[in-house]
Computed example of a mutant assay.
Amino acid sequence: MRFARRALLAAPALLALPAWAQSWTPDKPVRILIPYTPGAINDALGRLVGERFQDTLGQPGLVENRPGASGSLALAATAQAAPDGSTIVVANTANLCMNPFLFANTGYDSRKDLAPIAVVARVMNALVVRADSPIRSVAELVAAAKAKPGQLSFASSGAGSSPHLAAELFKARTGTDITHVPYRGSAPGLADLLGGRITLSVDNLPNVLPHVQDGRMRALAVTGTERDPALPDVPTFAEAGFPDVEVYVWFGFVGPAALPAAIRDRLSSTIIRIAESPDTAERIRRAGATVWTRGPAPMAKLIDEELEKWGAVIRAANLRLE
């Protein structure tokens, strides 16, 4: 999922923030850590926000990619940074709410060591099969899986990835046994699905959308609360008769736990204002995501809810990664 660098640079300057949000001003550049390599949506969102910091905070945002350990390295570094607003990280659902249950030691506690700042966007997943598959609905998939336990297979972008856990949630909610085949990234798994070596895949919508639109894959359902405008004929899982299969991968910014409220609130209002600006929102939409903003308190509640949800799923699937 990539944003065009030229498009980001073309974003207009933002209007001044209201006086109540201007109680803190950084005296040096703000370092924005990215848990992945360049090109992922975390990276794009970090660059978009960082390039607008000069307009609103008077200091640039400097992006630093720090991949490793499924994103845990960057979050651990942020947890250990000085709580002065000079270091924040672009985190997602997997980093904050899945990794703590998958790894023995992530180097951080999502509740105790990190301060929620702002959620800015989210992406739903889609369940897809090959276009010539005899399975044409979620109900037919569940029936086929129950008729042949363990014989159907699903691809994911990696063990412990958000698509993997979305599929595990589907299995848990439907009582089905479908064999997981992990890949190093989305592309090779989708290639094997197209090659007929895998039965199905659950993946971030932007990854499968081109294959659905060109007629090589069939989307059976999306994990959102509403249908996606890009696939208006594809039902949600709730519409397909499975209301408990709802999954979004959301993206937001967090800082060190001891971040003062004045700094946290100024960063939050700045980041949300950038994300909600019309040009930025349109670019995020074109990338397959949706602008979805939440401030510190709602983000903290969201983290609590997702930790409870994914902890149960991961324990039920008996998943543990080294």
Rank of each mutant, 00 (worst) to 15 (best):
I274K: 09
I32R: 10
P67H: 04
G241L: 03
P298N: 11
A144T: 09
L220H: 06
V90M: 15
V249S: 15
L231Q: 05
R264T: 10
P26W: 13
W20H: 15
L190F: 05
E306K: 15
G288A: 02
L200Q: 12
P29R: 09
L15R: 15
R315N: 10
V49T: 08
G255R: 13
D27Y: 06
P188K: 10
A167D: 03
F3Q: 07
L259K: 13
P206R: 12
P29T: 08
W310F: 14
K301R: 15
P232K: 09
P83V: 04
G288N: 07
S70K: 11
P256H: 13
Q22K: 15
V212M: 03
T179W: 06
W20F: 12
F237D: 04
W250V: 03
T176V: 04
E322Y: 10
A159N: 02
G61H: 06
M299D: 09
N95R: 10
V222S: 02
L220S: 03
L8V: 14
V142C: 03
S153T: 15
F251N: 12
A94G: 07
V208C: 00
A76Q: 14
V120R: 08
G158A: 00
D279Q: 15
S137L: 04
A159W: 03
R122V: 00
P206S: 11
R264A: 09
P67L: 03
A16D: 15
T236N: 03
R216C: 00
R266D: 10
A187K: 14
E226S: 11
D214R: 13
P182E: 05
L169G: 00
P134C: 01
E140P: 03
P26I: 07
K301H: 13
V120E: 09
T199W: 08
W24M: 05
G175Y: 01
E239T: 02
G58D: 02
G46T: 03
E168H: 02
T290P: 02
T25D: 06
R283W: 14
R66S: 04
A262L: 09
D228S: 11
L102F: 02
W310D: 10
A69D: 14
A40R: 15
R130N: 05
D177L: 07
V90S: 05
R283K: 11
A191F: 07
E276D: 12
S137H: 03
R5E: 15
V247Y: 06
D113W: 04
V202R: 04
V89C: 06
K309R: 15
M1K: 12
R52D: 01
V63T: 08
V123L: 08
L319E: 11
T106C: 13
